[in-house]
């Protein structure tokens, strides 16, 4: 599989990049690590006329604590570097764990945080070569009017598999989005749309420039967990990030976010409520897991029944909550 022709522009500043984005909006894509975009382009899923290479822009390659104690991370930060970054490990170990669980070391050596946050949604019927897709009519995600994965559905159900997404939402992170002349900062939760064919709120002339993780006033802890068929180089069957704040077994606030089971990360509000009301105990964990099962509106896709997905979600909730009552150990990804 080879790439088709395009123009390539390597700006020397973020400003230059944003100008180019504005001038070619609709026909431009930013290239950072390239591990997602170039694969999609090789499959003929995207065919931008212009590539703006932002991977090495110094403005996007920073990680620092701001005066309020929040952590600011540039979208161009390399995933391997972040995985080993001591500031991130100290401030947001759950995000570090999510990053370490992404793909393979080869991919992490190339890919960026921004790239993972924006990772295109995935589907059996979408992530295929042009040759493969020629056997079926176009789907919602390729400009058609049907979904092959969930037949009869009125929208695209491609899955959001960005491992960092649930962690960022659980951490209460803000996403910094820029375009020429303006900047907006939005909660990570609102960055995603529950629509496989258009899964973020990014406009064609915008780019994600960084993330802000509130660490200053936060007292709680966050844990991340991912279950994938294969431990390395695999997308999650399901992932979860949980943020709990409280004293001992009381729980002031709770945020539980499931990843890779829908077109957007799923925030389990009722499940969180169970914990706030009952505190954290073996019993409440069981109750929360059951609540999660009923709260999830997952659908059957051809090879993963809704039943299995709910089973998995229940396990994720149970296991991630258990890591709050276990003695703190370095978090490892769940073995297959």
């Amino acid at each position: 599989m080879r790439l088709l022709r395009f123009e390539h522009f390597k700006p020397s500043s973020l400003e230059e990049a944003l100008t180019a984005m504005q001038e070619s909006a609709g026909n431009v894509r930013v290239l950072a690590g390239g591990t997602d975009l170039l694969v999609n382009m090789k499959c003929g899923l995207e065919q931008p006329g212009l590539i703006v290479s932002i991977g090495s822009l110094p403005e996007l390659n920073t990680i620092a604590e701001d005066p309020s104690g929040d952590l600011r991370i540039g979208a161009g930060m390399n995933l391997s570097e972040l995985a080993e970054n001591s500031l991130l490990a100290a401030k947001a170990p759950a995000l570090r764990d999510a990053i370490k669980s992404i793909a393979s070391q080869h991919i992490r050596n190339m890919a960026t945080l921004g790239g993972n946050v924006c990772l295109d949604t995935r589907c059996w019927y979408y992530n295929q070569s042009k040759l493969w897709r020629a056997s079926r009519p176009a789907c919602y995600k390729t400009g058609g009017d049907q979904c092959h994965a969930t037949r009869g559905s009125e929208r695209c159900h491609a899955i959001n598999s960005a491992d960092t997404a649930p962690a960022l939402i659980a951490l209460g992170a803000q996403v910094v989005v820029q375009k020429k002349g303006s900047q907006r900062q939005i909660p990570a939760e609102d960055f995603y749309r529950d629509h496989g064919a258009r899964h973020t709120v990014l406009e064609p002339d915008e780019l994600l420039s960084g993330l802000v993780i509130p660490c200053g006033n936060e007292t709680g802890k966050t844990h991340f967990l991912k279950i994938s068929r294969r431990q390395g180089i695999d997308f999650a069957l399901g992932s979860i990030a949980a943020h709990l704040a409280g004293n001992g077994s009381t729980c002031h606030s709770a945020r539980l976010v499931i990843g890779s089971l829908g077109s957007a990360p799923i925030v389990l509000e009722k499940t969180a409520q169970v914990l706030v009301e009952a505190g954290l105990s073996q019993e409440s964990i069981q109750a929360a897991a059951e609540a999660a099962r009923s709260e999830l509106g997952v659908l059957t896709t051809l090879f993963s029944s809704a039943g299995y997905k709910r089973d998995l979600a229940q396990v994720l909730v149970k296991r991630v909550l258990h890591s709050f009552i276990k003695k703190p150990t370095t978090q490892k990804r769940t073995r297959r």
Binding site: G34, I107, M110
Partner: peptide
């Protein structure tokens, strides 16, 4: 497409996949 590792080269000390890097980069 970055899934098998047979094209691994070392760039600036890190193992990377030559199939997913533009030569101009």
């Amino acid at each position: 497409v970055g899934t098998c590792g047979v094209c691994t080269v070392i760039i600036d000390g890190k193992a990377m996949l030559a199939c997913l890097l533009l030569a101009v980069e």
